[in-house]
Amino acid sequence: MLSFKLDTKDMSCRRLMRSFIIPNKATLLVAIRGFAAGGKAKKGSKGGDAPKAAGLSKEVKSTTVYGANILKEGGDPKILPDAEYPDWLWHLLDKRPPLSELRRKDSETLPFEDLKRFVKLDNRARIKDNNAGRAKS
C-alpha cells in the first residue's frame, strides 16, 4: 500500500476526478501524476536545464537560432542567407482579405488563391449560420 502526503491541490483534483466515477486508487494515481515533483522552486530560479543565453558571444547569437534544437543530440540550426529559404516563406505573414472584402469583389476577377479562400470562408460561415439556426429551434 502506498501512502502519500496530499496538499489542498491534490485533494481538489481528487474531488474533481471522483465526479467522473473513477475508483479511489486510480484517482489518487491520476491526481499525483498531474503535479511536478520536487515541491517549491528555489527563489530566483527560472527552472529548466537550458544554458543561459547571456554566456554566448555576439557572433554565435547572430549566426545561430539559439534554443531551437528540440533533439537530444545535435546543435542549434545555423541562420542561412535569405536566398537559401523558399519563396513562400516570405509571404506567410502577408495580410489576406477577410470574407466581407472577398464578397464585395467580383468572383470572376479574383486570383485563384483568393477564390479558394473565399469558398472556404463562405462555406464555414454558412455552416455556422445553419448550426445557429438549428440550435434556436
Rank of each mutant, 00 (worst) to 15 (best):
I70A: 06
G133K: 10
E59G: 09
K105V: 00
E101V: 05
A31Q: 03
K40E: 14
G34F: 14
R126W: 02
L99K: 02
L71N: 13
L16G: 05
K40H: 09
A53W: 02
I22V: 02
K61D: 01
N69K: 15
E84L: 12
L102G: 01
L2N: 04
D114W: 12
L16H: 12
R103V: 13
S57C: 10
D106K: 04
E101G: 03
V30E: 06
K52H: 11
N24P: 01
A132W: 02
L6E: 10
W88H: 06
N69Y: 11
I127Q: 07
G55K: 05
N24I: 08
G67S: 03
K9W: 06
T64L: 11
K58I: 12
R14G: 04
D49K: 15
N69C: 13
R126F: 05
C13E: 13
W90H: 03
K72S: 13
G48K: 13
L80H: 08
D49T: 15
K136G: 10
D82F: 11
R15K: 07
L16S: 05
A31Y: 03
N24E: 15
L89A: 02
C13Q: 11
V30D: 07
A54I: 15
G34Q: 15
I32L: 07
L115C: 01
M1Y: 09
K25S: 09
K78D: 00
T109P: 02
D49L: 14
K46H: 03
Y85G: 05
T27Y: 00
K58V: 14
R18M: 09
A132T: 14
I70N: 10
T8K: 01
G133R: 10
S62E: 04
N123S: 08
K136V: 12
I32D: 04
K128M: 15
G39K: 02
A125S: 09
P97Q: 07
A37Q: 07
K5M: 11
N69M: 12
L71D: 11
R33Y: 08
K61F: 01
C13A: 11
R126M: 09
L89V: 06
L28K: 09
K136M: 12
S45Q: 12
P111W: 04
K46I: 13
G133I: 15
K95P: 01
K5F: 09
I21A: 02
I127G: 00
V119N: 09
S107W: 14
E73F: 12
S100H: 13
M11V: 12
M17I: 01
P86G: 04
E108Q: 10
P81T: 08
L110K: 00
S107G: 05
R104W: 02
S3T: 14
P23A: 07
S57K: 00
R124W: 08
G133F: 09
A135K: 03
G34N: 14
L99T: 03
P97Y: 00
K52T: 14
K116S: 00
L102W: 06
K5D: 14
L93S: 03
T109Q: 10
A54V: 14
Y66I: 15
S137W: 08
L2M: 08
F118I: 01
K5Y: 10
A54L: 11
